[in-house]
Design a protein around this nucleic acid. Structure first.
Lengths: 211, 211
DNA sequence: AAGTGTGAACTTTTTCACAGCT
DNA sequence: AGCTGTGAAAAAGTTCACACTT
């Protein structure tokens, strides 16, 4: 197989499989069948096998999947077998939470620098990282590899986006309340906000009320 | 039309449209064509019109959509025209961030109570809310309507899920690192974590490196 | 006997293209 | 003339079902 591009939904499910495999490893469950893993991931087993076929031939017929080696294959496929360098734009409580969150560090996502546009923050040390003026980003990017730009700024997220893209950053996590997009195929932007995800639940609740 | 169930992707896009409409309203842009709005939302205009057709006949032929009234229709359709009551399970920095986040309050998501299982937290006041023992949830649920249960606990998210469901809560936002599922069609669970969304970017970066 | 991997069938979603309203 | 709303066509994604391997 291969050749075909990975569907977005398949990518999302692969990430879930990885998470559940990590759980199974802690619980010392090994091996596991597609039936059993699928049930724990809320999908059907044909779906799971088809999804995994994008990654490779990972199972043993008549037996199932080795939890350990499937986890390893998924990590590698998802680019989670090494570390990534992040920068952050916009100091606020969410930024603070992310910088102090050791879970992200444990999982290989390392914040390298913080940017802001407000004078009172520039030059300070924030959660152990120096705060730079956004206009000085070139200096930082010249010295360290930056993989992912995280935008937390509520005020001018577009400014951070433009600046990050101008510096050649290819992957953006936008956590502001305004969704951001790029026509450029070579740029990947993920938009997330808590009101966004809660609205998915509010729609469900409204629907449920009506019935 | 109508009759057909709303696809998940359509729901997600409707939420994006709403966000962008709020932005357009602030910018005093009104009316707007499907072409223009679609471009700002990173979708194609036929897609946008088809999505909106699930909500109703909202546009004016030859003119476009009124930003103000389209925003209103979407809010109503998404259940965002009134307030929702939330409870939170598991005290930690993420819980703290959510409880202190006035944006959620402004958008109609109100935290009513906090639960934990660790004695040292019970009975304390945390971000202005009383912390109850999870085992005493029935007492709280008897006195206030609870719409959404938010799970922040890292240690035993399953315990919070089971307890919330047992109390009849229909909508769950799980922010722990273990994805949770329910077979029950009448229960809606949204799983989110920062490592999850960053993994989508790491996959993209890995792919990009390979080419 | 058990359980994967995958073509083929089926279902859903997206895009096209244009009739019809303003 | 301009732009929506929507059937119909095309594309994409999911599920079935079974050949095949251990």
């Amino acid at each position: 197989m291969k050749v075909k591009e990975l569907p977005e939904n398949t990518l999302q499910r692969l990430i879930i499989y990885l998470r559940v495999l990590e759980y199974l490893e802690r619980e010392k469950i090994d091996p596991i069948s597609s039936e059993d893993l699928a049930r724990r991931c809320g999908v059907n087993s044909a779906q799971l096998r088809k999804d995994l076929s994008f990654v490779g031939n990972l199972g043993t017929k008549g037996v199932g999947y080795s939890v350990k080696s499937l986890k390893y294959s998924l990590k590698k496929f998802l680019g989670r077998n090494h570390e990534w360098n992040l920068i952050l734009g916009g100091i606020n409580p969410l930024a603070n939470f992310l910088l102090e969150n050791s879970q992200l560090f444990k999982e290989g996502f390392n914040f390298m620098a913080v940017f802001d546009t407000r004078d009172e923050y520039i030059g300070k040390v924030y959660s152990g990282l120096s705060v730079y003026n956004l206009s000085q980003i070139s200096y930082v990017v010249r010295n360290i590899r930056v993989d992912i730009g995280v935008i937390t700024a509520d005020e001018t997220p577009e400014l951070y986006l433009e600046t990050f893209l101008r510096e050649g950053i290819k992957a953006i996590l936008n956590l502001s309340n305004v969704p951001l997009f790029s026509e450029n195929e070579k740029i990947k932007i993920e938009n997330f906000s808590f009101p966004f995800i809660l609205t998915k639940l509010s729609y469900f609740l409204k629907l449920y009320e009506e019935k």
